[in-house]
């Protein structure tokens, strides 16, 4: 037994010799970090996120892999959901909605229902061909090259307004190309994936388009308000503008060809600074019913008087 005790003691002594104890301050720091690791990690991640947000305007290419992966992963889900939505809407309008009356009605009513369904389908086809005809006519008449695209989804986050189109890098779509319809300007391409492109609508808070008032040629900047409308900036108190005036692209930025409709002035108020006036404009394009667009595949439309 004494021999065993001795052995044990010698082991302890060896361990004591090799182990370098932490100083009190090191131990305090270590335990403090461990205790508050969540708060420290929160502060670090919050500051990093804020740094990402604050340096947004520096146009540093960021998150391409994540964006590409997210678009790639969401694309089939979106296609599936759009298909399901159309199928459910069709079933509702053509079957479920009529199920109560179907029990009471005779063969004639079934025929009417079938004819109505056929009529709806034909109307949809007429609408589609009309829209495509308008786009084609506009494209043929336009002095710039365009390519047609369908809208896949409408992303309305709290302050961002973007749409996803079914054309991307593979179709020659690149950043900062103008997106338009015969009714006017839709926005510009901000991101491109292989088969999809993200378009910043002109109602997004980050959108600024150089415009002029069609009637008086007064120049300003149409800025999205993030809530479905636009504000016309840098119009002075003595400038001649009125409700109903149309705003057209000036072509200064080089992104949009000159003379495309952007919006219509709907409200004019005296600004807070007694120098500029506050002008609210409604977009020329109705984004809620938008389905097909044209992407202008040319760029460098610089202002020519």
């Amino acid at each position: 037994m004494p021999q065993f005790k001795k052995k044990n003691n010698s082991r302890r002594l060896t361990a004591a010799k090799t182990f370098t104890p932490m100083s009190i301050s090191e131990r305090t720091i270590s335990s403090y970090l461990k205790k508050h690791q969540i708060v420290i990690a929160s502060i670090f991640l919050a500051l990093y996120s804020l740094h990402l947000a604050l340096t947004y305007k520096q146009d540093i290419p960021r998150g391409y892999i994540v964006k590409g992966a997210v678009y790639y992963a969401a694309y089939p889900v979106q296609r599936l959901l759009i298909g399901t939505k159309s199928a459910v809407a069709g079933a509702w309008s053509h079957y479920v909605y009529l199920i109560g009356t179907a029990e009471e009605n005779d063969e004639l009513k079934k025929n009417i229902s079938a004819l109505r369904s056929e009529n709806n389908r034909l109307r949809e086809e007429i609408n589609l061909s009309r829209r495509l005809k308008d786009l084609l006519e506009y494209r043929d008449a336009a002095k710039f090259d365009t390519t047609g695209a369908n809208i896949l989804s409408y992303n309305a986050n709290d302050w961002s307004r973007t749409v996803l189109i079914n054309k991307g890098k593979d179709d020659g779509i690149r950043k900062d190309l103008a997106v338009i319809t015969p009714a006017g300007v839709v926005g510009r391409v901000i991101e491109t994936g292989g088969k999809t492109g993200s378009v910043l609508l002109n109602t997004d808070s980050r959108s600024n388009i150089d415009v002029y008032v069609q009637r008086t040629r007064v120049k300003g900047v149409a800025e999205g308000n993030g809530n479905g409308g636009m504000a016309l900036k840098y119009i002075r108190l003595d400038d001649d503008v009125m409700v109903g005036d149309m705003l057209l692209t000036s072509g200064i930025s080089g992104i949009f060809p000159k003379g495309l409709p952007v919006g219509e002035i709907v409200r004019i108020e005296k600004g807070k600074d007694n120098f500029f006036i506050y002008i609210e404009a409604r977009p020329a394009v109705d984004f809620k019913t938008l389905e097909d667009v044209l992407v202008v595949t040319e760029s460098g439309f610089f202002y020519k008087e």
């Binding site: 919050a46 996120s49 740094h51 604050l54 992303n155």
Partner: peptide, 12 residues
């Protein structure tokens, strides 16, 4: 990334 918003704002 998905909605095309200001990157980092939602994370923050």
């Amino acid at each position: 990334a998905f909605t095309g918003g200001v990157l980092g704002s939602s994370s923050f």
